[in-house]
Simulated assay, not measured.
Amino acid sequence: MKLVHYAVLAAMSLSLGACQYTKTADPVLSERDAQFMAMIPTGDVDKMYARYMVDNPTGEPPGVIVVETKQHLLYYTLPDGKAMRYGVALGSEAFGWTGEAVIDHKAEWPTWNPPAEMIARWPHVKRTEGGWTNPLGARALYLFQGGKDTLYRIHGTNEPEKIGRSVSSGCIRMRNIDVIDLYNRVPAGTKVIVR
């Protein structure tokens, strides 16, 4: 009986060893980033949604962002079969978006200009200058299709406790420290697949 028990434990250890999760260092922050980030709650984020380097599960070549909506995970594919994995908050079912796009441009501490449809639903929302109170957080990556703005973004959030949930109006939200890390890694023109 003990031999079977040890065999099961050994098999479990081997299978867990195949799942390589490597914690990565936080990006270096500018003075402005550090000041704003100190004012934003960090929230309790499930370790499932922490930033890790993992074996690439996407099947995509290096240099592609893949968002797995059912898992609430974003992957940025790297060379040598690796990927950076980040937890995300996504659009609620009514506002979810899937498809392919490219990052047209990027912005640090961007100004938030809510679209007309959002203002119609929630008249209290208004344009907000970049800073720690801005719903777009520390960075925004602007998603375009065929040269046209989709109005969807990959961006930071001032509600990090919602990572891992479907709560946004369609955008892909990340913890601010994670969106800074992704922003530093990806150039404009990067392909984004949301599935």
Rank of each mutant, 00 (worst) to 15 (best):
T69Y: 04
D104T: 00
D44H: 14
V67R: 06
P110H: 06
T22C: 04
V67F: 03
F36N: 05
E108T: 06
T58I: 05
G96K: 14
V64F: 07
V45D: 01
S30T: 11
V28D: 05
A10M: 03
P79V: 00
G81V: 07
A38M: 08
P61Q: 14
G43C: 08
Y75N: 11
K70S: 14
S30A: 06
E60A: 01
Q35C: 11
K70L: 10
Q71R: 07
T98M: 15
F36D: 10
G91A: 00
P79M: 15
K23I: 14
G99V: 02
T42M: 14
V45I: 11
M37V: 14
G59K: 04
T69I: 15
Q71H: 04
M39E: 03
A89P: 02
A7S: 09
C19K: 04
V64H: 12
T98I: 09
E93A: 07
T22M: 12
V28S: 15
A18Q: 12
R32A: 15
T22E: 10
G17E: 03
K23C: 03
V102W: 04
C19D: 12
K47P: 10
S13N: 10
M12K: 15
T77N: 04
N56I: 01
H105W: 06
L9S: 13
E100Q: 05
L74F: 01
L16S: 07
A34Y: 00
L14V: 12
F95H: 08
D55Y: 01
F36V: 06
W109L: 10
